[in-house]
């Protein structure tokens, strides 16, 4: 069942003549883990802003086509209604944090929902624990490092228990281990709670093996959409400036030299398995 339906979506920001989204049609199923990538300026952040109604309600501009999120037509639904179902984590966490302690920050959205105190306390505890920042609960967000701030923003989002989580390069400021932890956390939110994950990302090494589906955009259009193995190894995305993981580059390099793996590897471990198969066959 698609939880997001996009049909014939085109968009221009106000005062701009450039069409940043061009006739996009897309369905995303409930519980899918989708990575959206593509060169800077390809429209991926703009597309994400349509999922929670920031476009058109906040940004304005010229929107054509249809977007339905969790059954609500975005054009006719307020951002506060959509916010109950769609959580958003941005690239720069600072723009999202403004309170004096991490705990207050994570509780803020819940207080606005008017939840009972015990429920708020419980959800804040859980969210801090899930993201691994319980030890930071009394610290001031503006004193934390960029990576720690990003985790606070994510915890605040998770505490709201959204059905869809949209994350715009959430691991950009994180060290690689923290980044992998966050990606795995997103996967477990999907597996355990059926949360739909939409992740905008440039660094594809770590996400290739956790996502169900890759969408590559270029110049406002979707140029490739499907299983990560097919998308990353397709010739469609060559020359677009997409950072294809090293294991895929290796796969392609070897193929050119007539070493054919029977699977497009997404991890170093899969490279080994592929190599062993070739050796046996030899």
């Amino acid at each position: 069942m698609p939880i997001i339906r996009v049909k014939g979506l085109s968009y221009r920001y106000p005062g701009s003549s450039r069409t940043v989204l061009k006739n996009i049609t897309l369905n995303i199923d409930e519980g899918e883990y989708v990575v959206i990538t593509g060169p800077s300026g390809c429209g991926k952040t703009t597309l994400c802003r349509c999922f929670n109604g920031l476009i058109p309600h906040f940004y304005g501009g010229n929107l054509e086509g249809e977007i339905i999120v969790n059954g609500f037509p975005v054009k006719e639904t307020s951002t506060s209604t959509l916010a109950q179902y769609v959580g958003m984590v941005f690239q720069e966490p600072e723009s999202q944090l403004f309170l004096l302690s991490v705990e207050r920050e994570v509780a803020f959205g819940l207080e606005n929902l008017g939840l009972p105190r015990e429920e708020i306390v419980k959800r804040v505890d859980e969210a801090l624990k899930l993201v691994g920042i319980s030890h930071l609960r009394d610290r001031a967000p503006h004193e934390l490092s960029g990576g720690e701030q990003q985790k606070v923003a994510l915890a605040a989002c998770i505490a709201m228990q959204p059905k869809i989580l949209v994350l715009d390069e959430p691991t950009a400021n994180l060290d690689p281990i923290s980044a992998v932890n966050i990606l795995n956390l997103l996967q477990s939110l999907r597996n355990k709670l059926g949360v739909t994950i939409i992740l905008v990302e440039h660094r594809l090494e770590a996400v290739a093996s956790v996502a169900d589906r890759f969408i590559v955009m270029n110049d406002g259009m979707i140029v490739s959409d499907g299983d990560p193995r097919d998308v990353l190894s397709s010739t469609n995305i060559e020359g677009l400036g997409v950072g294809v993981p090293k294991v895929i580059q290796l796969y392609k390099d070897l193929k050119r030299r007539n070493v054919i793996f029977n699977l497009v590897p997404l991890t170093p471990k899969e490279v080994k398995a592929c190599l062993m198969e070739v050796l046996e066959f030899d």
Partner: peptide
């Protein structure tokens, strides 16, 4: 300080 954050492959 973290110049590659938010940069695509070509920009890197």
């Amino acid at each position: 300080d973290e110049p590659t954050v938010g940069q695509d492959y070509g920009q890197k």
